[in-house]
Computed example of a mutant assay.
Amino acid sequence: MQAESHPLLAVTTLTQEERVAKEDYEQLTEFGRDFRTIPAGVHDVHANLSIGNLGFEEYAAWAHDDPEGMYRSF
């Protein structure tokens, strides 16, 4: 919380046993089981995961591509 952007940690709670296929779990966790987001990004993540518009892996990939490793909202 000392960083200027006050990043929050988003973590997937799914385990490999909960996935239908091992390949699905590997895709979900390709960029890790967690990512950081700025507080303004929490609403985007929650809303889109709730309606199934975007997946956890997409947010993790965007955070992975960011120079500071954070999802920064749309």
Rank of each mutant, 00 (worst) to 15 (best):
R19F: 15
R19I: 07
R19T: 13
V20R: 15
V20L: 14
V20S: 13
A21I: 11
A21E: 14
A21D: 14
K22L: 09
K22W: 05
E23D: 11
D24V: 09
D24P: 05
D24T: 11
D24F: 10
Y25C: 06
E26F: 14
Q27H: 12
Q27Y: 09
L28A: 13
L28Q: 10
L28N: 06
F31C: 03
F31V: 01
F31H: 05
G32F: 04
R33T: 14
R33E: 11
D34S: 10
D34F: 05
D34P: 00
D34W: 05
R36H: 08
R36C: 02
R36W: 04
T37I: 09
T37N: 00
I38S: 01
I38P: 01
P39W: 04
A40K: 08
G41I: 02
G41D: 03
V42A: 13
V42I: 11
V42Q: 15
V42K: 14
H43S: 11
H43W: 04
H43V: 13
H43C: 07
H43R: 12
D44V: 08
V45G: 14
H46W: 11
H46I: 10
A47P: 00
N48K: 15
S50P: 07
I51S: 14
I51Y: 10
G52H: 09
G52F: 09
N53L: 13
N53G: 08
L54N: 04
L54T: 05
G55M: 08
E57K: 03
E57S: 07
E58C: 03
Y59Q: 01
A60V: 03
A60E: 03
A60K: 02
A61V: 00
A61T: 00
A61P: 00
A61S: 02
A63V: 02
A63K: 00
